[in-house]
Design a binder for these strands. Structure first.
Lengths: 197, 197
DNA sequence: CAGAAATACAAGTAAAAGCTCGCATTTGTC
DNA sequence: GACAAATGCGAGCTTTTACTTGTATTTCTG
């Protein structure tokens, strides 16, 4: 019974992932407010009926997408920040981390419009807040590894602020020209180094 | 004819302002995605038919609101930043400007969700970008008055970055407790001073 | 192979939201 | 006071959209 269910669910889980992929694409193309479930179904190459076999309503699709994003990012940054060794110079470190953020951003346009838009309801905003706090905590513990004298409370504030700075610049990069974008990234790195040293 | 039209339009303009006020309230209460034109009409104490006499569609209402906001902010910051004298210490200056931003933010909740949400389409995002650039230019010229050696291009980048930092912290203040919010404001001021000096 | 569970689908439903229409009322000029 | 233009109304039309239903097909166990 369990075995049989598992096998069936394997196909279903793949289908669910396809639906989330489709939703991601639709958001990237027409934006979150214009997303319709029928559009997602069409993009996923299935009928609305099939879509509603895996997600009970539109909300669950968005929740699923956000969960997938937050899990992925949480895991990535936890590992990435834990791997930071205290001996690497601050400017190099900041440069690497900012570059990785920019790379992810350009790879996943839907991510930002979902998690950091006011369009989404309270639930998604809360999820975004939790993710922010979690990453900020990892930044904080990394900072304290580099500067043992730093108070925990202060480190948390700094982590949250540094993360906010990065997030603030991201949308500006997208809408600017490549050269302007590069300038902005450079200035962001400078500001972070000045702030954190 | 023109005179008569003007007199009628005076009444109409007042009515339009009432509609925008109503839209602002509705956004503040239920959020932008849940806003309906009928709700706006009801809140403005008029029928849907009357509303559509002044705005051809929902989009125009939002455009009107955004225009009113951007005009107001543009004017405010142009005057405020032009009035900055070069002799006031950086930390005091930053403290004042940040405090004024926070005050406006708490007074106008709809402003942020409209201009800095991904809910709104490209048009509103562009309007937000133009406002950002305009204010950044004023910050830049203020910075150059304080530091004559500063290159224009660099000053512009700094203005844009400083503004981005302020905007990034705003949403965090709202969702945090008052004490935490005060800490965040303090940390923002510190980061700005470190960055700009 | 049989039967059950899961998956797939297309057409369709019900409600919501944007917007219109025809008509009544007010405002301002002659 | 009369006429025209602007304003005001609210019931209802139209479209959209989230979601359902009934049925057909595939997948896997015994």
């Amino acid at each position: 019974m369990a075995e049989r269910t598992v096998r069936r669910q394997a196909r279903g889980l793949k289908r669910m992932a396809e639906i989330l992929d489709a939703a991601e694409q639709v958001i990237a193309e027409v934006g979150y407010p214009e997303l319709t479930t029928n559009q997602v179904a069409a993009r996923a190459g299935m009928s609305p009926g099939s879509l509603y076999q895996f997600f009970r309503n539109k909300e669950e699709i968005l929740d699923g997408l956000v969960t997938r994003y937050t899990d992925d990012r949480q895991e990535f940054w936890a590992g990435r920040l834990a791997a930071v060794t205290p001996d690497v110079p601050l400017d190099v470190l900041v440069g690497q981390l900012v570059d990785e953020s920019v790379r992810f951003k350009s790879r996943s346009p839907a991510y930002w419009s979902l998690l950091y838009g006011t369009a989404t309801g309270d639930r998604l905003a809360k999820a975004a807040g939790r993710l922010h706090d979690d990453i900020a905590r990892h930044i904080a513990s990394m900072l304290r590894r580099r500067s043992p004298g730093l108070a925990e409370e202060r480190a948390l504030l700094m982590g949250s602020m540094a993360l906010a700075m990065v997030k603030a610049v991201m949308p500006m990069i997208t809408s600017a020209s490549p050269e302007r974008g590069a300038e902005l990234v450079g200035e962001l790195k400078f500001a972070l180094v000045r702030y954190l040293s």
